[in-house]
Design a protein around this nucleic acid. Structure first.
Lengths: 205, 205
DNA sequence: TATGTGACGAATAACGTATTTGGTCACAAT
DNA sequence: ATTGTGACCAAATACGTTATTCGTCACATA
């Protein structure tokens, strides 16, 4: 609601450059250790042995660096989910894995890298582009599962595919979205399982 | 997660007392006007023409007064939902009304009494007893609807009633819980309708 | 006993200021 | 061109100090 902060990529200078990687490496460590807020751009500069001004040759803002780190995080989450889904059997099994892994992977991030998780929460609440992309990729994966289930007769076919995909995603949101998830922790894991059950019942042909 | 803050009633002195009512009246106005945080107990005291110390004869903390006001708010929400459900036809219709009214009534509170809504958000995030009671009453109402639907064959009967009730409530949480709802505003009203549709599909016999 | 209060301490918030931080730019060196 | 920086500014933040605020208690009055 705040602002239409689509927050575009915000990169700068050469896309492939060793210094860009050094910045990201330093940021990953500093952000994870001290948190996004407590890490200054000068800290990153000192870490890589260049001046602060030079960093702005590669990123047009501190937030842009945050987005790069956040992209790594949610990218990791997505990879875990995709892999778990890939190892599934039928569409029902895949859907269960989709929901379960999305939750467990995110919770794990919360407990192992709390500081990075905080960036994800901030990114989500501020509608960073990187989060929107994550949601779209997740919904894409979900849609694939739904298609498969519809084709082989596991799932009903009357409801428009888009609506099914969206409504499932909304229903699972308290267990996927970092902002919601940290407020759902005390319900885990039962609530997540039960909602997944509800979703599967709604998909019955 | 914070603390086991069941935050018991926290009343004091005589339950029925005109001064207690005066305090609540003053609090309702001040909280709605200036917000919970900006209203001091001395403000309330001045408003009713007694000393601050006297207020503590009736409430054991400022939060206790906040809970009283919050109880009024969520009580109003519940009444609206119950009334809307009562005007419904079959169980399917009642469920739709349940979900829709819970959302619209809460959103309306958000827009017409933002300051009071903030108290509800705070209460929910701090697990005030009054919110727990609200959730239980809402789930009770939901269970009644489910029972009716099961009895007359509208809804399936295989899934344990408790599980059905809980999972539906979780799925609707982004559109009912004040904390979640204010982050779901940009999805309304479509997402709410679509999730309700999903829920009804899951209930098909 | 029931009603009512001023004075008090510890915790918190408000406030103004000094410092830091995000970000830019002109300029130097290779 | 590309690589790299110190100096600089507005905005944000940290910090120390003052002022409020919550909540209690002993005490007064009817």
């Amino acid at each position: 609601m705040k602002n239409q902060n689509t927050s575009k990529a915000a990169k700068r200078g050469p896309a492939e450059h060793s210094v860009r990687d050094q910045i990201v490496d330093a940021a990953r460590e500093c952000f994870a250790h001290y948190g996004y807020g407590k890490t200054t751009v000068s800290d990153l500069a000192r870490e890589i042995g260049f001046s602060k001004a030079y960093i702005y040759r590669f990123f047009e803002s501190k937030q842009a660096i945050g987005e790069a780190i956040c992209a790594e995080c949610v990218g990791g989450l997505f990879d875990q989910v995709r892999e778990a889904v890939g190892e599934g059997g039928d569409a029902t099994d895949k859907l269960r894995r989709f929901a379960r892994t999305a939750t467990t992977a995110t919770v794990e991030l919360l407990f192992t890298d709390r500081k990075l998780y905080e960036i994800a929460v901030y990114a989500s609440s501020e509608n960073w582009e990187v989060v929107r992309a994550y949601i779209e990729r997740m919904q894409g994966l979900l849609e694939e599962i739904l298609k498969e289930g519809r084709e082989n007769g596991e799932f009903e076919r009357k409801t428009p595919l888009d609506e099914t995909r969206r409504s499932i995603f909304y229903a699972l949101k308290p267990f996927i979205d970092p902002v919601f998830l940290e407020r759902s922790l005390d319900l885990l894991p039962d609530a997540q399982t039960e909602v997944t059950g509800l979703v599967l019942r709604s998909l019955a042909p």
